[in-house]
Amino acid sequence: MQFEAIRMELDATSHVATVTLNRPEKLNSFTRAMHKELAAALDEAISAGARALVLTGAGRGFCAGQDLADLSFEPGAMTDLGSLIDEYFNPLVRRLQALPLPVIAAVNGIAAGAGANLALACDIVLAARTSSFAQSFVKIGLVPDSGGTALLPQRIGMARALGLAITGDKISAEQAERWGLIWQVVDDAELPTSAARLAAQLAQQPTRAIAAIKRAMRASTTNSFDQQLDLERDLQRELGNSYDYAEGVQAFIQKRTPRFEGR
């Protein structure tokens, strides 16, 4: 499928799909058409057999959030932001979190508004040293969306989350790493290589187990402790009947590298 605002490349050797937001002249800000292309690109990556996914941006920014030029501000015909979020942004972040494979955000340049929270919705965030993050919603009279009001306090605590959301201040990638908002900062020139290397490493892991880890970790934010113990039991029972578990045990016994297949 041909895309205009998205690039999707699959490395058949590593089974890593790289999905690039490709509106660099607009700092990769989202339009409705771009949302549809991204959803189709994710479909294509999964159907092509990707076992890990890298999400990044073209040019000098990761994503500046919603493109305001794609909205209507005419009196009586204003774009319903609730409907926009319900139709596009919420399905996107839900899907990224539920994908049955590891998802790495490789953040280059600015990640602002929904663009910042798009990165945080991924499983692991690598960021270029000169990149930055901003919850810029308050600057135009809005509340953080795309999961921001949940992801921020979960990762950095309520005091810092409120500070970022209320001021709309930008923080550097290095500050984000110190606060635990992201996984790791790398030198700008190393970002593509570091993301590809990590994705290739994860693609060789038992991706079915990784999907279960994603599910369990995220469920822990709302489950009671007893519910979480039950979920761990159920997932462990399921994984205990998998090919990858049997392969992992045999490889351990035979002192060889396991060959996981994600099943």
Rank of each mutant, 00 (worst) to 15 (best):
A105I: 10
N22W: 09
S194C: 15
G163F: 09
M158N: 14
A195E: 01
I253F: 07
S83C: 13
G109E: 07
F89V: 08
A203D: 01
A165W: 08
P144T: 03
L198V: 07
I85K: 13
V138K: 01
I253Y: 12
A116C: 13
A64E: 15
R208P: 05
F89Y: 11
R237F: 15
V249A: 06
G57E: 03
R32I: 06
Q236A: 13
T193S: 13
A48D: 11
A39K: 12
R233Y: 15
A246Q: 14
E261C: 14
H15R: 10
L42Q: 02
A41Y: 05
A173R: 01
S72T: 05
G113S: 11
R95W: 05
G240P: 12
I166A: 08
S146V: 08
G163V: 14
A251V: 15
D11V: 10
E87H: 10
Q135T: 08
L162H: 08
A196R: 06
A98E: 12
T193A: 12
A105E: 02
G147T: 13
G248I: 07
W179K: 04
R23V: 07
R237K: 13
V16F: 01
C122A: 06
P91C: 00
V19H: 01
Y243Q: 14
A112Q: 06
T31A: 02
A246D: 09
T167A: 00
L68M: 10
A48L: 15
V186D: 00
L202I: 03
F30H: 10
I253E: 04
L84E: 10
F225E: 04
R95T: 11
D123G: 09
R129D: 10
D70L: 07
T193K: 12
L55P: 08
K214S: 03
T193C: 08
I46C: 09
N22Q: 08
I166H: 13
V16Q: 00
L118D: 04
H15Q: 10
G148R: 02
I182S: 00
I6D: 02
A77H: 09
I182N: 00
G65T: 09
S136M: 03
A212N: 05
I124V: 14
A98V: 08
R233W: 12
L21A: 00
D145C: 12
E238W: 13
G141S: 01
L142K: 05
P100C: 00
K139L: 13
A128D: 04
E25Q: 09
V186A: 00
R178C: 09
G168L: 03
A64V: 08
L71M: 14
N223V: 09
K139C: 05
P192K: 00
R178P: 11
P144W: 00
F30W: 11
E232M: 05
Y245M: 07
P258V: 12
Q205P: 04
A48H: 13
A50P: 07
M34A: 08
L198P: 10
A98G: 12
L101Y: 04
K170H: 04
